[in-house]
Nucleic acid binder design. Structure first.
Length: 350
DNA sequence: CCAATTTGACCTAA
DNA sequence: TTAGGTCAAATTGG
């Protein structure tokens, strides 16, 4: 059993274990009056079932896939481990540097996130995952540049999840976040090692004395009553969209966090998982164990985000991405709520 | 010093 | 040919 299959097996065990735990807690909640808690546990149980089924479906499909070929290990690029190309070129390093057909087949889904001014733009500062910005591009016809992020643990844990962030032309408080590929990393594990100060906090410190920022934040706070986090347009029409792990929960209000997770309607859940795509990158089926492990010599940063893109600060609202795949205890517990949320909103007030 | 971000160059797909 | 996506050297910042 190679590392990849091990991963699916462990994920499956993990999912089922979580499901059982939540079922137990649900049973306990039933004896009390905790409706919200019951709702939450029910969602988690459903999520566990869906994820488990997805893992099984995917594992089954992969074992029937003749294209799962061993790549040249030296490249280390994702495209090298599996290819949907009928004539995969596994010798040419150049062919693996840029987007391949396999990458294009990665599960893709979008979210529209509207800036919430509740609590003066306070909010979760991340979506539970660590992202590193690797590019920004001016897009033809778009007022704002598009930012490109990939998982921080790409090299460390061979996680090839990426996301693109595009601010809406018409509505500057609305951001379209496109996720490509699901996380195969265990960010819980990383976060357990250290919890460094988030870049948002560093950024805020930097900007705290900036009068313009103060004014902007005050003005933005005035929008408070009218704005809400919005994740309900998750690109239902995109047929290629497939989401390996179902949204974890929705509509859950955590009174301790003073934060409302946006509603995700039931149709959306159903529309997310029919065509399952690998919960892990195919290369994780090939690479041996070390690629799945942490590099202990490196300093591990967790829950950090770009300082330049607002949606990062709110993406933890999106139930679809808020839970780490492995080791999920309770995603909200890992969300940092930064009251000093830095937000370069100067563009609004030019 | 090290890690994250920025940004111009490069590559691919359409 | 060109727009979009990615790389990687330079820069920034803790």
């Amino acid at each position: 059993m190679d590392c990849g299959f091990n991963w699916e097996y462990n994920s499956l065990i993990n999912e089922l274990t979580q499901g059982m735990e939540h079922a137990k807690q649900l049973r306990a909640s039933c004896s009390s009056d905790k409706i919200q808690e019951m709702h939450f546990h029910m969602q988690m149980i459903l999520s566990s079932f869906e994820n488990s089924l997805s893992i099984l479906k995917w594992t089954g499909s992969v074992t029937q896939t003749p294209l799962l070929i061993a790549p040249p290990v030296s490249t280390g690029a994702p495209e090298s481990s599996i290819s949907v190309d009928e004539n995969p070129k596994i010798d040419d390093h150049q062919d693996f540097r840029y987007v391949s057909k396999k990458r294009k087949q990665m599960p893709t889904w979008s979210e529209q996130v509207r800036v919430s001014a509740e609590n003066g733009f306070e909010g979760p500062t991340d979506d539970g995952y660590s992202w590193r910005k690797y590019g920004q591009k001016d897009i033809l016809g778009a007022k704002y540049p598009r930012s490109y992020y990939r998982c921080t643990y790409r090299a460390m844990q061979n996680c090839w999840a990426t996301k693109q962030v595009q601010r809406s032309d018409d509505d500057p408080v609305l951001f379209e976040i496109t996720y490509k590929g699901s996380h195969t990393c265990n960010q819980d594990f990383n976060s357990a090692i250290t919890q460094p100060k988030s870049p948002e906090k560093r950024e805020f410190k930097k900007q705290a004395n900036n009068p313009r920022m103060i004014q902007s934040n005050q003005m933005l706070a005035n929008l408070q009553a009218n704005l809400r986090v919005n994740t309900n347009e998750l690109d239902k029409n995109e047929t290629t969209c497939s989401f390996p792990f179902s949204p974890t929960f929705s509509g859950f209000v955590d009174e301790n966090l003073h934060f409302q997770i946006s509603q995700v309607d039931d149709n959306l859940v159903g529309g997310y998982s029919p065509s399952f795509v690998s919960p892990t990158t195919p290369e994780s089926n090939y690479f041996s164990l070390p690629s799945c492990q942490m590099n202990g010599s490196r300093r591990i940063h967790n829950l950090h985000h770009s300082e330049s893109d607002l949606p990062d600060l709110f993406s933890a609202n999106t139930s679809s991405t808020s839970s780490p795949i492995i080791g999920l205890e309770f995603p909200l517990e890992h969300v940092e709520f930064d009251p000093n949320f830095p937000f370069d909103n100067s563009e609004f007030f030019r």
